[in-house]
Amino acid sequence: MLWLKAFHIIFVVCWFAGLFYLPRIFVYYAASEQQAVREQLAVMARKLYRFVTPFMVIAVALGIVMIAMNPDYYLAARWMWLKLGGVACLIVYHIICGRYVRAINDHRNQHNHVFYRFFNEVPVLFLFAIVILAIVKPF
């Protein structure tokens, strides 16, 4: 179980690295007025999204395996349901990032850098909540 938990945490950290950096690329893209820079940032965003998506899948899969190993405990814990709700929101956030990546690469971006600056802060809020729920187990 500890090996599973260790790898779960490793893949969560890798996924979050992407969730933190990808919207920052969006900010730079929207703020840039140079077409060559925008093209390079679009490529970077596409490659980063493709790179971190498997981390999300593996992190979720390992989490499901850990729950399956002790379902009576985890599924009865209110903190776990709140954590899973946060994870579901992050998965939606990840998918939205993918749509923004596609829009940027198709030259259909409709958001400015200020929007992306706020959008960039969303995963930080979920990180705080999920870590507190998983470690402190307040409920």
Rank of each mutant, 00 (worst) to 15 (best):
M1I: 15
K5N: 12
I9C: 03
V13K: 09
C14P: 14
L19I: 00
L19Y: 10
P23C: 04
P23S: 02
I25P: 08
A30N: 01
A30C: 08
Q35R: 07
Q35T: 04
V37N: 12
E39K: 10
A42C: 03
R46F: 11
L48F: 03
Y49K: 09
Y49W: 14
F51T: 13
V52Q: 12
F55R: 12
F55W: 15
M56W: 00
V57N: 07
V57I: 15
A59K: 10
V60R: 03
A61P: 09
I67E: 08
I67P: 06
I67Y: 08
A68S: 13
P71H: 01
P71C: 00
Y73D: 06
Y73N: 13
A76G: 04
A76K: 06
A77V: 08
M80I: 15
W81G: 09
W81K: 11
K83M: 13
G85Q: 04
V87K: 03
L90P: 06
Y93K: 01
C97Q: 13
V101F: 04
V101N: 03
N105F: 05
D106Q: 15
R108L: 10
H111I: 04
H111V: 00
H113F: 06
F115Q: 00
F119K: 00
V122G: 01
V122K: 09
L125H: 14
F126T: 03
F126W: 00
L127R: 05
I130D: 14
I130Q: 07
V131S: 07
I132W: 13
A134F: 06
I135D: 14
P138H: 02
